[in-house]
Design a protein around this nucleic acid. Structure first.
Length: 733
DNA sequence: AAGTGTACTTAGGACCCCCGCC
DNA sequence: GGCGGGGGTCCTAAGTACACTT
């Protein structure tokens, strides 16, 4: 595939195939859209515009070229839309399977896109007060550090900051070379570079609409060139076609390697996977070539390279909405559904082993219970010299178990599990193994508790609880119970089943039928939240969010105070006292703020130099702050009047404030409940989408209210299920 | 049987942009 | 009509699983 770099990569033969699909689907959609069209029988309604546009730049959106067309012309779609139609045309779940063991027969793509080379800014860091002359590579490394947020999750955390700095400085010094004067981090001052970067941000903020459009076009050009892949004649979206740029490694938690320099990856380090018959995509960097070209139809990756931090392979793959991912997603959910038929047998099997003589059997049974009931991950072994110290089921250590955490005495069956899981997210739950939820219906809570007591006996804090188990031994046992069963299937299974049960509860409530779609969505999110809690999907509350929460809290306090004042006014009224507090003039503040905003806007428009742009952004930020203050002062006396109010006015306002307070309290509670729970992860990865689709259909909730466009594309295979669908073993057939 | 390598899924945070609210 | 917050997307780290090697 020779094709020059300037054009969208050539699609000669595949283009024909694509168009076939494209026009089919497209014509359907178009017919719907253009009822007025008199040319219904036109075989390929958008043929002409589509054909000559596919290769041309996307800039001519509003098509000056279409001057001569009749008024009945169809709406001209943007290139992205047309490509989307082309992709949607392929219903892989209705198409024949590829050869066994293979993912594809032919695959063609444009390879990886690389970031621009580093352009030095010339701003000097100080060492011991002296400005330093650095080479481009040295300056780049210094700039990576300067770009780090001082209050962020790495440098803002006193536990991780020293690790980050130590690693960064070691790598920085090796870039500088041994003889360089820079030897001590404490004498380094990156302030000037940091200031420069902030200024660049300011300049970027002062961008005009036109510049914005240009930027978007450039981005789209890259998307059209690299973002699509042709698999067996079908257009598919590529997930990550941009090579990861160099920078500092941002490992999570207490990752021992955080701060190390992540090197720039050259084309020579990249392997490309394409089919033999289509030719190799040209390397997009002048004077460079791919490290290797493979033709392996057994794998789904399009490109791979090794990163220098952990020496791990990274891949370029198709996007989540592609057929490859869709197929494996569907089979994942089918496997989980299949577990419905086996779960009874499996629970019986591990119940009988909970009291086995062999320690290994007991541990196996106990671990199975943990994975099944607590939805823990399997927990592979980790090297704490190389990675953060996080654990899962098999790697749990004695120190992660706290018996009788509330010091209620020996006769309770409570254990607090406290450990860092994947991504160093804290798992902290007290499990009462004697509670009904773990004992009813063959829950086995008490037996499991006894086993835990036994397993930790005479062990050191740092010993593993399940010392006889490994993920692979556990998984090979699971394979004996059900074909293809592994530990992670339990998470999918439990998440999906929980969603189904919680959703069923919603439908059974008395007032369900009277709820609006929006109210039903709230109920769906509540069900979703139960799943997220089960899977321990969390998000850390950022400082901004915390502030926001605090602000709402303060506002609430103000409202409550205002209500009190209103009541006191009412009392004074009754006494005939006309001395009530009145509004102070606030107009001036507001007007000044408005004026400042106008000024800033003008500055932005008139800005020519970078300096002007920085000034404009500053002015804009200050003006906005001024306006916030004006709004704030308005809010503080919003309950008052300009002149003495009547009794009715006061009464009315008290009622209004009561509803305001109630509303805000709800809002606050809602935010507080959700601030640490992340609903997205379970929606994307764990809950069978067919359950959601069926629920939406049964309850006349538009699917758009639950699944975003990307999710609807990702789950396109699940959209046609019947409204009465149940998540059970039938699905797997 | 443990170690190593490969390929894939799962994950949270940063950032951006759009839509509902004032 | 403007703006701020939140949803959505992007980014890439961090898991699981399993084949293959030693």
């Amino acid at each position: 595939m020779p094709g020059s770099d300037d054009e969208d990569f050539e699609l000669s033969t595949r283009e024909k195939k694509r168009r076939k699909k494209h026009s089919k689907k497209h014509s359907k959609k178009e017919k719907k859209k253009s009822k007025s069209s008199s040319t219904k029988k036109r075989p390929r309604p958008i043929k002409s515009s589509s054909d000559d546009d596919f290769h041309s730049a996307p800039k001519q959106k509003n098509g000056k070229r279409s001057v001569a067309k009749p008024p009945t012309q169809l709406k001209k779609l943007e290139k992205t839309d047309r490509l989307n139609y082309a992709m949607q045309a392929f219903l892989w779940w209705e198409a024949p399977e590829p050869r066994p063991g293979c993912q594809w027969d032919t695959m063609e793509h444009a390879g990886v896109s690389f970031p621009e080379p580093y352009v030095p800014h010339g701003v000097k860091m100080l060492y011991d007060g002296e400005p330093m002359d650095l080479t481009a590579a040295e300056e780049e490394a210094a700039t990576f550090f300067a770009a780090m947020d001082q209050d962020g999750m790495h440098l803002g955390n006193p536990k991780t900051a020293p690790i980050f700095i130590k690693n960064f400085f070691a790598d920085f010094r090796s870039v500088l070379g041994r003889k360089h004067v820079i030897k001590n981090f404490d004498k380094c001052d990156f302030g000037a570079i940091r200031k420069h970067l902030n200024e660049q941000k300011m300049i970027k903020k002062a961008i005009t609409e036109r510049e914005k459009a240009v930027r978007k076009d450039v981005k789209n050009d890259a998307l059209y060139k690299f973002g699509y892949c042709l698999v067996d004649g079908h257009l598919e979206k590529v997930g990550n076609y941009n090579m990861e740029p160099p920078g500092t490694f941002r490992g999570r938690g207490e990752h021992p390697k955080m701060g190390k320099l992540k090197q720039r990856v050259l084309p020579e380090q990249v392997f490309i996977n394409v089919s033999e018959c289509v030719g190799v995509p040209p390397c997009s960097v002048d004077g460079h070539a791919w490290g290797d070209v493979r033709h392996d139809p057994c794998v789904m990756w399009l490109g791979q390279w090794k990163e220098n931090i952990n020496n791990q392979v990274k891949y370029m793959q198709l996007a989540a909405q592609s057929s490859f991912k869709g197929k494996s997603d569907r089979s994942k959910y089918n496997k989980a559904a299949k577990l419905c038929a086996f779960i009874g047998k499996i629970r019986k099997a591990y119940k009988s082993k909970l009291k086995a003589k062999e320690l290994e059997d007991r541990q196996l049974a106990t671990a199975m219970w943990v994975i099944d009931r607590l939805a823990l991950r399997v927990g592979g072994e980790k090297d704490t010299e190389e990675e953060a110290d996080t654990v899962g089921c098999c790697s749990l250590r004695v120190e992660h178990l706290h018996f009788d955490p509330n010091e209620e005495g020996d006769d309770n069956c409570e254990i607090e599990l406290e450990f860092l899981g994947k991504d160093s997210m804290l798992f902290k739950q007290t499990i009462d193994f004697g509670a009904t939820m773990y004992t009813e219906n063959n829950g086995m809570g008490e037996e499991v508790y006894k086993n835990f007591v036994k397993f930790v006996k005479n062990k050191k804090k740092t010993d593993e609880v399940f010392d006889t188990l490994t993920p692979s031994s556990l998984n090979s046992h699971l394979k004996e119970l059900m074909e293809g069963l592994t530990a992670k299937v339990f998470r999918t299974f439990n998440a999906s089943l929980t969603l189904q049960e919680e959703l069923r509860k919603t439908e059974q409530s008395g007032s369900w039928k009277t709820l609006s779609a929006a109210e039903k969505v709230v109920e769906y999110n509540n069900a979703n939240r139960e799943v997220a809690i089960l899977c321990n999907h969390q998000k850390t509350v950022s400082k901004a969010q915390e502030n926001q929460l605090e602000n709402i809290g303060n506002k609430l306090e103000t409202l409550k105070h205002q209500k009190k004042v209103l009541k006191s006014i009412l009392i004074r009224h009754a006494k005939g006292d006309k001395e009530v507090p009145l509004k102070k003039p606030e107009k001036e503040l507001k007007e000044a703020a408005d004026q400042a905003i106008l000024n800033a806007k003008r500055m932005k428009e008139e800005a020519k130099t970078d300096e002007d742009k920085i000034k404009a952004t500053h002015a804009d930020e200050e003006a906005k702050q001024q306006r916030r203050e004006a709004t704030q002062s308005k809010f503080i006396q919003a309950h008052l009047w300009d002149k003495v109010p009547t009794k009715e006015q006061v009464c009315k306002r008290i009622t209004l404030w009561t509803t305001k307070i109630a509303k805000m309290e709800m809002n606050l509670k809602h935010r507080d409940d959700n601030k640490e729970v992340s609903l997205g992860t379970s929606k994307i990865n764990y809950m069978d989408p067919r359950i959601t689709v069926a629920w939406c259909k049964r309850n006349e909730v538009p699917i758009e209210k639950i699944f975003s466009k990307t999710l609807r594309d990702k789950f396109n295979w699940a959209m046609s299920v019947p409204p009465n669908l149940e998540f059970n073993a039938e699905l797997a057939k």
